[in-house]
């Protein structure tokens, strides 16, 4: 069951490379939140019930509801609906994304231990690459925020991989979520106006 959800998670990552509308990005982020909830519930069999409910609630409340809601508000405030035309074309993004998937699989295979499954490792690494690629290849602030959210999901996926033995690490990952959600999106994200959606005043 966990493996199916993880593979589905990887499919959402591929979608990121081909999509050009910001609203699709946001829906994909919400979808990843739901999938992470499912992965946590199915994967963390040894964690006590209270902690599990907390983790599930966090993924649903923060990742699936609050963050996409704040992102939609930022899009509405800034009036940007599509990815910047100067960003890398979707075709090349897709190529890079598939290349990243291959690299992730190779790295995961070279690091095989009995402790973490290779599927977990491959998809988590792939998600990390997708997030960083989105930050590097896109120019809009909204895209950068979404890239960061994907990176955060990769971190969460990694922490679920070790979560049975180390629930404290998952709780810290949640701390990172709240930190990013409240500060980055809630405070600064909403202050970025349409004319400053690309901010470039500070330079040498």
């Amino acid at each position: 069951m966990v493996n199916y959800l993880i593979v589905l998670f990887a499919v959402t990552n591929i979608f990121f490379a081909s999509a050009e509308r910001i609203s699709i990005y946001i829906r994909l982020i919400a979808m990843q939140g739901l999938l992470l909830c499912g992965i946590a519930l199915a994967g963390l069999s040894e964690v006590n019930l209270g902690n599990l409910i907390f983790i599930a609630a966090e993924t649903i409340v923060f990742k699936t509801v609050i963050m996409p809601y704040l992102l939609f508000r930022i899009v509405k405030t800034s009036g940007v609906t599509k990815v910047h035309r100067l960003s890398m074309p979707a075709f090349y993004n897709l190529l890079f994304s598939i290349f990243a998937l291959l690299i992730s699989a190779m790295i995961a295979k070279s690091m095989l231990t009995g402790f973490v499954s290779s599927v977990f490792m491959t998809v988590a690494l792939y998600t990390l690459f997708v997030g960083l690629l989105l930050i590097v290849t896109h120019r809009l602030i909204v895209s950068h925020i979404i890239g960061f959210m994907i990176t955060e999901n990769a971190v969460f996926l990694f922490s679920v991989a070790v979560g049975n033995e180390m629930p404290m690490l998952i709780n810290i990952g949640i701390l990172l979520d709240i930190f990013a959600g409240v500060l980055i999106l809630g405070f600064f994200g909403l202050r970025i106006r349409s004319n400053t959606n690309e901010i470039t005043k500070l330079k040498d």
Binding site: I135, I141, F148, I184, F188, I192, T196
Partner: peptide, 14 residues
């Protein structure tokens, strides 16, 4: 100041 703060918070978060 907003731009510098934004960049600082964002990159530090990454």
């Amino acid at each position: 100041a907003l731009e510098a703060t934004w960049k600082y918070v964002f990159v530090c978060s990454v």
